[in-house]
Amino acid sequence: MTVAKTSVLVLDCAEPESLAHFYAELLGADIRPGDGFDMVEVVGGPGVHLAICRDHGYAPPSWPRPEDSQQAHLRILVAPEDLDEAEREAVSLGARPVSADAEEGPRDARLFSDPAGHTFTLAATGVKR
């Protein structure tokens, strides 16, 4: 018999409350206290559950620079016709575009960093990358 399990992606950062607000706004989710003093959770509809944890010695990843690994990233799926609007929304909330390649023109997957430096991708549903 398999034990029922669930998972949550935990992002470390220096200021968990502000990063939780970023992701709550971006994902249309709610913020709630997490397990422990330095943990905040972002919970929304199906598939939306993040935890943000304070790391007092946090240093953001430098990906795509080769000296550090990417560590982890989120892939946020949106309808293809909503990709441009989702990008505008993310940037207005404090996301920064990250150029990992020299691809020109319209793209169906776009890479960003959140205010704490974690990378995430906005991708049109059905995109395999």
Rank of each mutant, 00 (worst) to 15 (best):
S7E: 04
S7A: 10
L9P: 06
L11F: 05
C13T: 14
P16A: 12
L19V: 07
L19C: 00
A20Y: 02
Y23I: 07
E25G: 01
L26P: 01
L26R: 10
G28M: 11
G28I: 01
G28T: 07
A29P: 02
D30C: 03
I31W: 04
P33R: 12
G34L: 12
D35Q: 13
F37E: 15
D38N: 06
D38L: 04
D38G: 11
E41W: 06
V42K: 07
V43H: 05
G44V: 01
G44Q: 07
G47R: 02
G47Y: 00
G47I: 06
G47A: 06
G47L: 08
V48H: 05
H49Y: 06
H49F: 05
L50H: 12
A51L: 10
I52L: 15
I52P: 07
C53D: 14
C53E: 13
H56C: 14
H56Q: 15
G57C: 14
Y58R: 03
A59Q: 15
P60W: 13
P60Q: 15
P61A: 11
S62N: 09
P64A: 01
D68K: 15
S69P: 11
A72I: 13
H73Q: 08
H73K: 04
R75Y: 08
R75G: 12
I76Q: 07
L77V: 09
L77W: 14
L77Y: 13
L77R: 13
V78I: 02
A79K: 11
A79R: 07
E81T: 02
D82V: 07
D82M: 02
L83W: 08
L83P: 08
E85A: 15
E85C: 03
A86I: 03
E87L: 14
E87T: 11
E89T: 14
E89V: 11
A90G: 12
V91E: 10
S92H: 07
G94Y: 08
A95Q: 08
R96W: 04
P97C: 08
P97Q: 13
V98H: 11
V98N: 07
A100G: 08
A102R: 11
A102V: 12
E104W: 03
G105F: 04
P106V: 03
R107H: 09
D108C: 04
A109Y: 08
D114P: 05
D114Q: 02
P115T: 08
A116Y: 05
A116H: 04
G117Q: 14
H118I: 12
F120R: 01
T121P: 00
T121S: 15
L122P: 09
